[in-house]
Amino acid sequence: MESKRVTLFAGHYGSGKTNIAVNYALWLKKSGKPTAIADLDIVNPYFRTKDSKKLLDENGIELIASAFANTNVDFPALPAETYSLVMRDDVYAVIDVGGDDRGALALGRYTPFILAENNYEMLFVANGYRPLTRTAEEALEVMREIEAAGGIPFTAIVNNSNLGRETTAEDLLASRAFAERLSVLSGLPIKFTSADERICPIGGVEDLFPLSLAERYYDVND
């Protein structure tokens, strides 16, 4: 799989952007590239990129996240260091954009740098099991709203259709028609299909990108 210097993950909130961004950064690093990841989410109060800080540190991936993430300070603030990811070219940058057009608004200030360098991929993370992006038409609407807010056109789609820990291979296979229709409607290719590594490999899915997902404190294992 080819990768550009800057990879941005955006999409409807709750589509799985953060999980994919963290896994993609780990994959880049394992391919031998110096890698950094930035959390641009100014919307979610919990379950942030910063939850994976230990894992990222252990793997030598630089994390740029708000000092206020996971604290009681409910600020839509981003650290100044975020600029370093778009202004220097000695590192592969993974950018976890906040959900929806509201989340993508925070991307706008970095957009001129990203467009000027022109070595980026803007990936739309799609989950056909999310209630407001059940159809390709609805997902396309969200896609256009994000592009308008962030100022960067999408270049490809990631099919991350899932039902959380209950996802089966059948659920994923059944989502492919959704992703393909979104591809036709938007004219964009599907870069990969991502799924919980516990249900991988899945027969017939060649572009599978397995995700290692962290256990959450609320998961019940009875």
Partner: peptide
Amino acid sequence: MSDKVLMKGNE
């Protein structure tokens, strides 16, 4: 596709 949807508790 499954008739289930993935939702946040608030949603």
